[in-house]
Design a protein around this nucleic acid. Sequence first.
RNA 1: GCCCGGAUGGUGGAAUUGGUAGACACGCUGGACUUAAAAUCCAGUAGUCAUUGCGACUGUGCGGGUUCAAGUCCCGCUCCGGGUACCA
Length: 928
Amino acid sequence: MEYNFNEIERKWQKYWVDNKTYKTEIDPSRPKFYVLDMFPYPSGAGLHVGHPLGYIASDIYSRYKRLNGFNVLHPMGYDAYGLPAEQYAIQTGQHPAITTEQNIARYREQLDKIGFSYDWDREVKTCDPDYYKWTQWAFVKMFEHYYDNDAKKAMPITNLISHFEKNGTEGINANQTEELTFTASEWKSKSEIEQQEILLNYRLAYLADTMVNWCPALGTVLANDEVKDGFSERGGHPVEQKRMKQWLLRVSAYAERLLTGLDTIEWSDSLKEIQRYWIGRSEGAEMIFPVKDSEVEMKIFTTRADTVFGVTFMVLAPESELVQQLTKPEHKADVDAYLEETKKRTERERQTDVKRVTGVFTGSYAINPLNNQEIPVWISDYVLAGYGTGAIMAVPAHDSRDFAFARTFNLPIPQVVVPKGEEPADTSTWSDSIDSKEGYMINSGFINGLDVPDAIEKTKQYITEKGIGQVKVNYRLRDAIFSRQRYWGEPFPVYYKDGMPNMLPFEKLPLELPEVDKYLPTEKGEPPLGRAKNWKTEDGHPLELNTMPGFAGSSAYYLRYMDPKNNDALVSKEANNYWQDVDLYIGGTEHATGHLVYSRFWNKFLYDIGEVCKDEPFKKLVNQGMIQGRSNFVYRIKGSNQFVSLNLKKDYDVMEIHVDVNIVHNDVLDIEAFKAWNPEYKDAEFILEDGKYICGWAVEKMSKSMYNVVNPDTIVEQYGADTLRLYEMFLGPLEQSKPWDTNGIDGVHKFLRKLWRLFVNREGQFIVTDEAPNKDELKVLHRTIKKTADDVERFSFNTAVSSFMICVNDLNDLKCHKKAILEPLLVLLAPFAPHIAEELWQKLGNSGSICDANWPEFNAGHLIESSVLYPVSFNGKMRFKLELPADMKVPEIEKAAVENEQSQKWIEGKQVKKIIVVPGKIINIVVG
RNA sequence: GCCCGGAUGGUGGAAUUGGUAGACACGCUGGACUUAAAAUCCAGUAGUCAUUGCGACUGUGCGGGUUCAAGUCCCGCUCCGGGUACCA
């Protein structure tokens, strides 16, 4: 009987469903382990062979943990809202819910064929009202809280209100958009609308004016990616910067905790580094520059307070509120023209185009608070409104952007820092600013001669004492814009009364996504929800027209898996206390700054309000590498329908043509399949080498246009799911990116057939015996137990597969068909190749699933050797091997090595200077 | 520019703490079985030189260094991949 993988896999996949093998429940008698895959977006193209890489790894780990006695939670679901479905809806009129359902069904079908151990009873979809009820609920909670900087956590907004009623803003240290100051009586005298307006300044979910890329022709807001040179990528319509009221989440309030939390979790250093950089903590000073003949004060942030004597001009961001106040009438025309110009450029363009130096003078002068010098105030788009205070003090000698600006507009460039070991220089000869991280101060008043770090310290002290400024920590991290002018997303649980936002009461959730006639903006330029009929509350207040962004639904999905059907809470206390957090999270690095920042924020908020028990959601995170495509080429002789094999093409003038990798095997073209592939090649002729047509190849992105997309289904049909699983792991280290190349797949398939042969002979007889195992067989088994466990623990799945191959080869050589050896081996293999393991497990006479077996116990005693084969090297070069008793002492080993006749050749005529013996490892004899 | 990875046979990769470089697999070569092919099995396979046999030398992107011993550690480069970008 042959290894019939198709039949076996169908049989066990059905068994698992029928017996609910992967159903998981809370079980306080066993330790929990939570293994999670990153939420997939079900695209129309279906899964390609790159997607399951991480899923296979996490599935192996889940099954391994289960065999080791853990109660494993391993769920899967869909991040179902997204732009592609909406885009498709706009083009075809097909409701995005329908396309999404179809795509999900296709994903599920593909996933099922690979034999994953997901508990499908816990499946969630972000577009399901029972699910997004809790997305809306969390948003309401954020609206009802603010961040207290002293308590370092979210607090109910009602606390803030009662504080305002008693003491005004006195004694409040809250995270806020703008710094406000008022007394209790001022607060009480404000109208309700005014009070609500003020509260938005503090809420964690708040409404504020933001700049967006507005495209009037499309009637929509575009992402930075969709804008090129001031025009929309789609259609080429002009795009302008427009102020728009949008919902934001006060992520920046959590900046410090998001940063320090990284030290408590096991993520890769590179991923942590990306997040640290994204959060961008910088310590510096906030300084106030008065403006000449004006009440206005300019507030700036600098990390280099010491260079303040080198400031020769100030720069405002074009969006800064100070622009209007500081622009003198005689400069207004120029300034307006400049603002109009920068409006056309996206933030990304402003940041990318370094060569272009532009700016305009406001006519105002600021006063340097340290030396009372008057300095001009300019406007330039190299300063961003979103970072710091939207204004900078420019130090042209020591900042390359300030330098370029000063050169362009002929502003003075005084040197204030002299690098170590150098002399003050004439800045007019410089072609760029010079580094000022190390050195001493000149032209700098009371800090002259000091080293940079001392100068920074002293300046900070000075400005604090004089009340010119304060020491401050600044973060690069910005609040997340949470409104999207789209249809296919979660509706906001918000209605407007007198223009002020109000939250729907909990009983009204979920607020379901309404039907619309078209998935386009309205004629008035409102978002698609503006088309919905009756989109208002029972008492007639209009509902919010925006929907939530993609990251809304994926920010807390890992919590919902713990208790997916709960109608009273996102997750019950009981479920949350049991499952706690994700022990292992596997996914790509592409989510480093999006999902992985937002969900940490979201989780920390839920933690603050007592809804979840862990501050950090993902204890350990492993990044899987990308699977690239490996394309194949054929070479057509130009102007003919004749194709020449790879190694003969140099003699011809040829054109390289992509050929479908699915009709190429080990770089050999299936000529008949090629002729059938495209009618154009029906009568093609071939110049072969050794009777074969050899194709060229290259590593490229996996995409339809390169004809290098390989679907897992195809592989499963040809080789089976177990082979696919093993092969994806065998390909190389999980974290590394690698091209998909089917060339080695025969090797792992052959391995499974060899394994099968240990149980069943060619004639189909079951040949496993109950004989007692011998020493050699036990050694092979226990070596493999140890190696597999070590490898799985460190996510080195490729070497684990190798160790199985070695094991099966060795057992084959030993002609071992003993149950005592083969049965534990099956358990080791079950996480990797569950179908064949189940089948053989059953053949051994076991009832039930191998998933419920126990991981075999490792006994080091079986690995003890009586002798060691020592490599003997001379001056570090291995020359021969010498077998010595394992318990031999170092002096005897030295003696044996030197006296061995093979050593004479290397010692002859030289002196033995030193002998190094590492017992059990190596002997090195130093001669000279 | 800055930050983080990486570079090992014809190919994918192994070498976990500085201790036999190339495990395992693909491919290739030769052989067995077969009328033949497939499948299967056996042997060989880093390079160069030598070859009757023993063998010798070189070798982990490049150049230095530390060490009895370096793919592994240190210094300086090159190339490739990823992230990020007027961040004050």
